[in-house]
Amino acid sequence: MKRAGFSDRWLPVLFLLPQLTIIFIFFYWPAAHALRSSFFLQDPFGFGETFVGMKNYTMLLDSASYMRAAWFTVIFTSLVTFLSLSIALLLAVKADKVIRGAKTYRTLLMWVYAVAPPVAGVIGLVLFDQSWGPLRDFVALFGWDFRLGVNYFDTAFTLVVMSVWKQLPVNFIFFLSGLQSIPRSVREAALIDNRSAAGRFWDVTFPLLAPTGFFLLIINITYSLFDTFGIFDTQFKGEPGNNPMTLVYKVYLDGFRGNDLGGSSAQSVILMVLVLALTIFQFRMVERRIHYT
């Protein structure tokens, strides 16, 4: 709060009211509702509910399909995060270095930010189309008989490729702006201190990008968990079948299409706890991280 703040009593309440109302109706109420539902078993025909305690949760942990989705989520998230961060870092370092065409490269590498995830899913369908997909033809040269939507691994491969493609721009933009905020003189000092370009990168540039990288790590994990939904859903063309899916997709599938409200709520609560843990971890790290000023 500002030192010289206004002291009106009702005005700020008025200003806060729209935000608070929306939050209570569409955030706290649903969250509480999910928490409550996760302890009940809903009658599939809408006639009442029974308190079942932790049963919804224990059932999930015993469910092979849930554990399969959980494992896939972990692997998918790690792959997407690692690949999109490292490729974006490489591109950002190069875009930061070149003088000619720097602006053009920047535009070309970031506009995909605005492409909606389901469109990325559609592109994946075309690229790996069974009869004439260009990338399918390409991997066929190496004897890979690619079967999108049929083979579990091939489908997962497409999902990872398209999710990385869609996420590159965000990471690129943040890394580039992180690089550009490193003072020029610090880089020049390194130029005098170290003749090896690789040495300068790992000793000076990389540690100075660490805060950006850490922040992006969290962003990428949340992206892989939540924002990839559109990519999955278009790839499945509405028929998830035995395809790989993330936990978020499963919440939607079980709850919305399968009408298992209790189980789906329990899944929601697990996700909430997961995201909360992640955020708390992030805040902890931010607090501890050295402020480079």
Partner: peptide, 30 residues
């Protein structure tokens, strides 16, 4: 000749210290 090979040392206007290194490492890095 690369700056690192010119046998020079430079003091910058804003000092250009490596923010993530201790004073000891800053001085010894070169």
């Amino acid at each position: 000749v690369d700056p690192a090979d010119r046998d020079i040392a430079m003091v910058f206007q804003n000092y250009a210290l490596y923010p993530h290194m201790t004073v000891r490492k800053n001085i010894g890095y070169g």
